[in-house]
């Protein structure tokens, strides 16, 4: 359920401190294979004390409607990400010759 929770006029809202505190169980990223033949795909995250429990929690939290046949869990801190702000991927956008539709082939040629 999603709700509108309004701020009370005149009431101070909290100051949110940025930065994780590490008291709780660590965060794990969850990847689910929807069915055989497909790759595991990222579906979300959860908290668990260890890998084994994380797998069980992933099963209970992310496959309640038979969404998967297999799960992976990875500690969130172990994910290394690209720096998206530096246009790392833009150079690939102007290379249409990598795609099959770039080439004009007469229909008589048949299946290529």
């Amino acid at each position: 359920m999603t709700y509108e929770v309004p701020d009370v006029p005149g009431e101070e809202t909290e100051e949110v401190a940025f930065g994780f505190d590490s008291r709780g169980w660590p965060l794990w990223e969850v990847f689910v294979r929807p069915k055989r033949g497909l790759s595991h795909a990222h579906v979300g995250s959860l908290h668990a004390p260890d890998a084994e429990t994380a797998v069980q929690n992933a099963r209970d939290s992310y496959t309640r409607r038979a969404e998967g046949v297999s799960v992976w869990v990875v500690p969130s801190t172990e994910i290394f990400a690209s720096d998206d702000s530096e246009s790392l991927f833009e150079p690939f956008a102007d290379k249409p010759y990598r795609h099959p539709t770039f080439y004009d082939i007469p229909p008589e040629v048949g299946q290529l």
Binding site: W25, L46, H47, Q56, N57, D60, S61, R64
Partner: peptide, 11 residues
């Protein structure tokens, strides 16, 4: 004790 465990108990 945790949200994840609540889901497990429900199952």
């Amino acid at each position: 004790p945790e949200l994840e465990e609540d889901l497990a108990i429900g199952n």
